[in-house]
């Protein structure tokens, strides 16, 4: 899943040359789209006497079929506009750009990653889709993502009081693995096996 943040006004202003149509995607409105900030920015842009020709609010821009159908409804506005400033995640912006290849598309947001795949269930742990799952050996805690260095053969030694040296807010993944292993019984003896070098090709197969 991912999350968007508005780009700074200063970053956007240089692009305000011709008449601009704002397109906002509210598909992820209730948690992820910075709607309040968007409203503030819009109000501010209006006071700057910029050439904004209109605004279209849609949802799920990433849904290509729907977006294609709905763009038909706004064909006039889009034809008239010189440039489209799109407030959406990177997927939404690209979908629109692919559907309107002759239009200049500006991205109004930066997109950030949040762990978790399905829908919008955010998780505090993550899966790197390595294609060589080790979770059966590591008490269900992923060394690739829970260890900030993605080490597969045990801790680096840089941990202090259970915290990672990269960020003191982060637990040491390997300490967690060992504690959990002990808690659920004897640590799997195979945890001591040396794990082969990660095969990066596997994740694509």
């Amino acid at each position: 899943m991912l999350i968007t943040q508005l780009k700074k006004k200063e970053e956007l202003l240089p692009f305000f040359k011709e008449n601009i149509l704002l397109i906002a995607c509210f598909g992820c409105k209730e948690v992820h789209f910075p709607s309040k900030e968007y409203e503030l920015l819009k109000a501010e842009l209006k006071t700057l006497n910029l050439n904004i020709s209109g605004e279209i609010v849609l949802d799920y821009l990433c849904n290509e079929d729907y977006t294609a159908k709905r763009l038909e409804l706004y064909r006039n506005e889009i034809t008239k506009a010189g440039t489209l400033l799109v407030f959406a995640c990177g997927v939404g912006v690209q979908t629109l750009a692919a559907l309107l290849p002759d239009k200049t598309i500006l991205a109004g947001c930066d997109t950030f990653y949040v762990p978790g795949f399905s829908g919008f269930t955010p998780t505090s742990y993550d899966c790197e889709q390595c294609g060589e799952c080790k979770l059966g050996l590591t008490a269900g805690i992923c060394p690739l993502t829970a260890c900030s260095k993605g080490l597969l053969n045990g801790p680096c030694g840089g941990t202090k009081n259970g915290k990672c040296e990269v960020s003191k807010n982060m637990d040491c993944g390997w300490e967690k693995i060992l504690l959990k292993s002990k808690a659920i019984g004897e640590p799997n003896p195979r945890i001591k096996e040396i794990v082969s070098i990660r095969d990066y090709k596997k994740s694509f197969s």
Binding site: L2, Q5, L61, N63, G90, Q94, A107, D110, F112, G131
Partner: peptide, 30 residues
């Protein structure tokens, strides 16, 4: 764990879509 996870190369939005986003936090699309 009985499965290997298959890499999907970025996030694909909420709908099935060919477009993907790396969620880099520094959008270059403009």
């Amino acid at each position: 764990g009985m499965c290997d996870s298959v890499f999907q190369g970025g996030y694909h939005g909420i709908s099935l879509n060919t477009e993907k986003c790396g969620a880099c936090g520094d959008c270059y699309l403009t």
